[in-house]
């Protein structure tokens, strides 16, 4: 059974990149374009093994999303990775306190993405 990743980013380019990379490696990918749609997707999907979310998004940002995900008992243990930029150290900290599992710096290479996803979701 393939693992399912929820990719959340308001940028279609980024979503495409994450999806393409992960699908190529056999993952199933569900996409959402902000925190609100991500929560809906999470509710609708049968299972989500890993969540990868951007931080800066309209409607609901990634940090809030992480908090909301953590507030759901069934997702207390689901790995959540936040996509940050090199200059966004403060976001990384915020993500960490919100309960994110790890971070990925944008831009990332496909290898790195697969590496960390495999790491949090063996």
């Amino acid at each position: 059974m393939g693992k399912c990743v929820l990719a959340v980013d308001d940028s279609k380019t980024m979503r495409d990149m994450v999806s393409f990379t992960l699908r190529g490696a056999g993952y199933t990918v569900v996409e959402a374009d902000n925190g609100v749609t991500a929560l809906k997707a999470l509710q609708a999907a049968a299972k989500v093994d890993v969540i990868i979310t951007d931080v800066n998004m309209p409607e609901m940002d990634g940090i809030t999303l992480v908090r909301k995900i953590r507030a759901q008992p069934q997702h207390a243990g689901t790995p959540v990775l936040i996509l940050t930029t090199e200059s966004d150290q403060s976001k990384k900290d915020e993500g960490r306190s919100a309960g994110a599992t790890g971070w990925i710096v944008k831009p990332f290479s496909p290898d790195k993405l697969l590496q960390i996803v495999a790491k949090v979701c063996p």
Binding site: K47, D49, Q74, H75, A76, G77, T78, P79, L81, G95, R96, A100, T101, G102, W103, I104, V105, F108, S109, K112, L113, Q115, I116, K119, V120, C121, P122
Partner: peptide, 22 residues
Amino acid sequence: GDGWGLFAPMPPAADAVAAPVQ
């Protein structure tokens, strides 16, 4: 410095924990 990292070590029994949750 590879552009990603974890905030805490993954629990070794991630699968075991995740399974009942799912």
